[in-house]
Amino acid sequence: MEKFIEHDGIAAPLLRINVDTDAIIPSRELKRVSKEGFGEGLFAGWRYVAQDSREPNPDFVLNKPQYQGASILLAGVNFGCGSSREHAVWALKEFGIRSVIAPSFGAIFYNNCIRNGLLPIVLSDDIVSELATQVEQQVEQDPPSRLIHIDLHQGLVTAPNGDTYAFDIDPGPRDMLLNGLDMIGLTLQHKAEIDAFQKQDRERRPWIYAVPNS
């Protein structure tokens, strides 16, 4: 998995609340038995002028010239709620988004981000709004002024004006992202404990292991 340590990027504000994973990538875009090929479907319902078209909707934030190359999304409460489809994260990632900053996230989406090297940052509504305001106000200036700096080691977000905001993240997800860990490989190191648990559990709950082969 791709590591996340530090990142500088253009931030695009999409502050709608309750943006669900159907909106991040509609079901009709999930056409491949694959983890790849979903970047084009990102926000398809909002990003293009019509459902079957790929003509950009000029009003959608990610289509605006000033946000070309955006790699950070500033989002509203409950971002990524709804369906568990991991395609939402794959689509964001393939589009180039490395981090989403929001007051809260859908729980399954949050876990999916961690497992794909995309950093979900929880900051208060006020701070996310402040970051969005700064980004929007500086739209006329050079692109670097819209840059937000993220340092996962220190747990800090630096706004375009230099203000810094500390964020919390649990140590487990933090380690996974910082080290780009293969979680399956890591968990298999606990094989002896899993074996021992299962052996004991067979005694304790035999009905779990007596599965009819009908």
Partner: peptide, 12 residues
């Protein structure tokens, strides 16, 4: 869960 977590559950 997502599909990456499903892989984890299936294998481990």
């Amino acid at each position: 869960i997502g599909s990456t977590e499903a892989e984890h559950a299936l294998v481990t």
